[in-house]
Nucleic acid binder design. Structure first.
Lengths: 187, 187, 187, 187
DNA sequence: TAATAACCGAGACGGTACGTCGCGTCTTAGG
DNA sequence: CCTAAGACGCGACGTACCGTCTCGGTTATTA
């Protein structure tokens, strides 16, 4: 019955957030600054997002909308290589800044941390697990292998490079990672 | 000519920081709050530490002073198992909160991030690399294996559990991790 | 052609205003709060009243509808005593809170101030002047006396007690005031 | 032991308040605006004054510092005429705006109202009462006259003109008022 | 008797100010 | 010259209201 949410305002907020992230980084991002840049009332931001991290998360999802499902390539190696390459590429450049900021905020804000863990992170872990299970069903993975450990090794190495920034998220890295995981699958 | 730094004030600051971390978490930690709780002038805190993260880092080093060097246990497996177990145990409980907060701050504060990366994180990586190099010298590690990838897999999985909190930092986890690394060393 | 004003909404607004005034005082009265309490859209309030003070004023007029004209009691003293008593009684208790709030708002809001001055205040002054003129016509008031000064003395003392709240608006006060005015009338 | 209050900041606040009052009136006066104009932190304003009305009150006292005691002129008439003239003159022009705003705020803010009543208003009433008592001691005032009523008549008429703004605060008004009070003193 | 225009409730919108908190700097007195 | 204390300018926090707007739903004439 009431006036509906303004899509224009929503877009303005997400756009302003992208600009501010690029210009000043996650640490300098404030609700006040987002509202100011977006030409939007602070209340409007608070009405729909509880924190800067949530705005960034939604913006990330918006940008990542292009990321699609994992088609079955017919072999574990092909499936896994594609998944790892896509995951690594998805956290490169600007996305790395966004992701590291979001992960940081999750450590500092209990509520947001819970949302990130049970939402985005769990979904990504689940997706990789499905790839590995498909391989096990095809007998390409030794049944004794603990798939969850493989998942942790893969996302761990990936996030560690994002957060510690000691080496690039190259395609070479993705393929080395894939090879290591495949080796572990086979015994 | 100058009066020396007051050890009493230093201890008060570190103690207050520990209390506040336990009570309210890293996100609620402030320079103002530390000074208040420690019964110390704000200026005194700023004089010796540029940010809360640095205080926490020093406090962490203080607590971790017990952690000693890596003795040579005679075999790669023994060396590695000991290293991984110690590393995992060192990020359990309160230390996990401290570590995750420090890592978060590193993402938000450029300067501190650089210090953490080239300091603590690089030192830990270097320590693990030495263990692996010792193994290679003993011909326990295939010379074609990229040791840096192993280092990333190990610290990645460890930090990922700390940050994503989806599973405990158990001894079982440490040993699974060790086994996976050993398998990769041999081929 | 058009739908007429809803009497139900009007009563809801005035009723809610009375409640809020009693509960929290004039200073806490807001258009938003009135609409909320009345279960009425904000627009409806704004459509019919430009400010909280106008709502209160209408509510006051509503409550004071019982106050009638000044009958001729036959003598200045009787007329004046009745007028002063009625005026004093009319600003006691809840009405004092309403009146003081309305007067306050008139100081802060130029437009409303003008309306109050040329409306309510001028009408009351005029009524008292008529009483005094009737007395002068009956030769009960010295023709040299400045009637406007008497009016100012009467309403001044009355409002001053309302606003400064240093003494009660008792019947005794009304009669003392009347006696003073009568004394000044006679020379 | 701590840094002392900054006289410079205090003056900046009072000065900014004077400017804003002149430019935009009491109704548009805000703590935020005062701080901005004064080039001072909001906290600094809040630290020393709880509301805009208190700032204005202090500013008023500052400006009115020139107002001195009531010397004894030797006769009731001389004393009273001087007092009334000074009181009337003191609420003319800019001071009228200040005074009416302060009085308004006292109606809307319980706490400030109490402070104004027991402070400034009571002191002024007391001063006039002393003038009248001196007259009674000299047998220039009929001992049966209720001095408090005279005080109410005087300040009532004065404030009423300030608030209702229906007639000017002229010297003629002051003298008419004085004459009326003198007439009431003598019987 | 259908349409139609102004009414109604709800509440989102761009704003401004609120009063508080923490930032990092400064200015004191005191050891 | 370091210390505890705390005032300073600054700017973000999250909330309350402002007055305007845009909805869907509801009357009561007027065509």
């Amino acid at each position: 019955m009431a006036r509906p949410r303004s899509e224009k305002a929503r877009q303005a907020v997400l756009g302003a957030t992208k600009e501010l992230l690029d210009e000043q980084g996650f640490g300098a991002l404030t609700m006040e600054g987002i509202a100011r840049r977006a030409g939007v009332g602070k209340q409007t931001v608070y009405r729909w997002w509880p924190s800067t991290a949530e705005v960034v998360l939604e913006m990330g999802n918006e940008l990542a909308a292009a990321v699609v499902a994992d088609p079955d390539h017919g072999s574990l190696e092909a499936d896994l290589r594609a998944f790892v390459r896509r995951s690594v590429a998805g956290l490169r450049g600007r996305n790395a800044r966004i992701a590291s900021g979001v992960m940081a905020e999750a450590q500092l804000d209990e509520t947001f941390g819970e949302r990130l863990r049970t939402g985005f992170l769990a979904r990504r872990r689940e997706a990789l697990r499905r790839v590995l299970e498909r391989g096990r069903d095809r007998a390409e993975v030794d049944p004794d292998v603990d798939l969850d450990l493989l998942v942790d090794l893969m996302f761990g190495a990936l996030w560690y490079r994002v957060l510690a920034q000691h080496a690039p998220l190259s395609r070479r890295f993705a393929d080395q990672l894939t090879d290591a995981l495949l080796a572990l699958c086979r015994r």
